[in-house]
Write a protein that binds this DNA or RNA. Structure first.
Lengths: 218, 218
DNA sequence: ACCTCCTGTCACCGGTTGGTGACATTTTAA
DNA sequence: TTAAAATGTCACCAACCGGTGACAGGAGGT
C-alpha cells in the first residue's frame, strides 16, 4: 500500500495483461488503472503520461517470444546426422516463427498495433524485433553460406510477412484466398507452400550455378 | 436542401472520403456528419445506425480497385509473341496486385480495418475480395494448366499476404527485416524475391516431372 | 385552408477518453 | 518532535463517442 516499486509493478503488469487479453487498443489510462487496482493519477506520477507508460513497458516487458531459442533450435537441428541444407534451415526458422507467433497473443497484438499507429510501444517493439530479425538472417547466412547467393533477406521478409499477415488475418476472418486459415488443415497447406517455395528457389539457384560456371565451390 | 437522395449521397461520399483521408478508424457518426455537412440525426434516419451505414457503403461503394482489369491485363500479356509460362502469368498477377494496392489508400485502409475488427464494412469487403481472389486463382489455373500441379492457391495466398503485410507495414515503419520498405529500391528487392520464389517453385515442379514420369503432357 | 408527412435543426443523454488540482495520510529525515 | 517529502484518494475537467426526443418549416394531397 505504500511501496512505490510494487505499485509500478502492478501497473506494468496490468499493461501486459490488457495487451494479452483485451488487445492493443484496450491499453488506456483508465483501463490500466482499473485493471491494476490503482488510481490513475499514480500512473501520471510514475510514468508521466500514457506514452511514457508504454515506453517503460516496451523496454522492460518480455512480451515478445525469444527469437534466441528459435535460432538455437534450428542450429541444434543442424547437428543432425548429415548437415542441413540452407533450405532446411530456412524452413525450420520460418516454421519456428509460425509456432512462436501462433502461441503468443501478445505478440500478435503488438504486431497489429505496429500496423495501426506509431507510438512509443510499437516503435520500441518494432525496433527490437528488427534487430532480432537481422540476427536471424545473419544466423542463416552464417550456418548456410550458400544462402548468400540469393537475396535471402528479401525472401525471408516476404515469407515471414506473409505468415504474419495470415496469422493476424485468421483472428477476424476464416478464409483468405480460399484457404481455410482458421483450421489446422489450412495451415498445413500454407506451411507446405512455404516449404515448396523455399526449396524451389534454392534448387533453382543451384541449377543456375551448374549452368553458368562449371566449377562449383567446395 | 430537400432532396433525400442527395443527402444520402453526400453521407456515403463522406464515408469514402474519410476512409481515404483519415483512415478506417476515423469513420464515426459524428465525423461523417461533420464531413458531409449534414446533421447526424439524418444518418440515423436514412441508414438506421453506424453498422447500417457501413453496410450500405460496403455494398455500393467502389472502394476496391478492379481485379478484373488485373486479370485482363495479365491475359492480354499472354497473347505476347510466345505463350507465357504459368510462372510469368503468376508474377504478372502479383505485380499487378502490388501496383493496385499501392495506389489505393482506401484499399489499404480497408485491409487494415479487416485486421482490426469484424464489422459490417470489413465483412462485406472481405467477402467481396475473397470472391475476386478465387477468380484470380481460377484465371491462373485456366490459362496456365501446369499451375494446377502445385498448390497454387496456398502459394498465392502466402505471397499476396506477404505483399499486403509489407504494404501496410510501410505505412508506419521504414524497415522490415532490414529491407527498406519505404523506398523504391526496397520494393524492387521484394518484387525480385517474389519473382525468384515463383520461378523457383515452377522450375522445381518441372524437374520433379522429368524425374518421376518420362512422358510429359503436351 | 387544412392536415399530414418528410426533411432538416438543435439540444440533450450517458458513457468514455486522457489529464489535472486539491487534499489526506503515511513515511522518512533533521 | 517536527517538518518535509512521498504516496494514495477523490472530485473534477473538456472533448469526444453513439444515439435520441422535441420541434420548426416546407411539400403534397384532400
Amino acid at each position: 500500500m505504500r511501496d512505490r516499486e510494487e505499485t509500478r509493478g502492478k501497473i506494468l503488469e496490468a499493461v501486459g495483461k490488457i495487451l494479452a487479453e483485451d488487445g492493443f487498443q484496450g491499453i488506456g489510462i483508465n483501463n490500466v488503472s482499473r485493471k491494476a487496482g490503482v488510481d490513475k493519477v499514480l500512473i501520471y506520477r510514475y510514468f508521466g503520461d500514457l506514452p511514457g507508460l508504454l515506453r517503460e513497458f516496451a523496454s522492460n516487458g518480455d512480451y515478445w517470444p525469444s527469437m534466441k531459442t528459435l535460432i538455437e533450435d534450428a542450429e541444434n537441428a543442424e547437428k543432425a546426422p548429415f548437415p542441413l541444407e540452407a533450405s532446411d534451415l530456412a524452413i525450420a526458422l520460418l516454421k519456428g516463427y509460425i509456432r512462436e507467433l501462433g502461441s503468443s497473443n501478445s505478440a500478435q497484438e503488438l504486431l497489429l498495433g505496429e500496423l495501426i499507429s506509431r507510438n512509443e510501444l510499437s516503435a520500441v517493439s518494432a525496433e527490437r524485433r528488427e534487430r532480432q530479425g537481422a540476427d536471424l538472417i545473419e544466423a542463416l547466412v552464417r550456418t548456410a553460406p550458400e544462402a548468400g547467393k540469393i537475396d535471402a533477406a528479401a525472401m525471408a521478409a516476404l515469407l515471414s510477412a506473409g505468415l504474419t499477415y495470415l496469422m493476424l488475418r485468421a483472428r477476424t476472418s476464416d478464409a483468405y484466398l480460399g484457404i481455410d486459415i482458421a483450421s489446422e488443415g489450412g495451415w498445413i497447406r500454407i506451411e507446405k507452400a512455404m516449404e515448396d517455395l523455399v526449396r524451389g528457389v534454392f534448387r533453382a539457384s543451384e541449377m543456375d550455378d551448374e549452368q553458368s560456371q562449371d566449377r562449383r565451390p567446395q
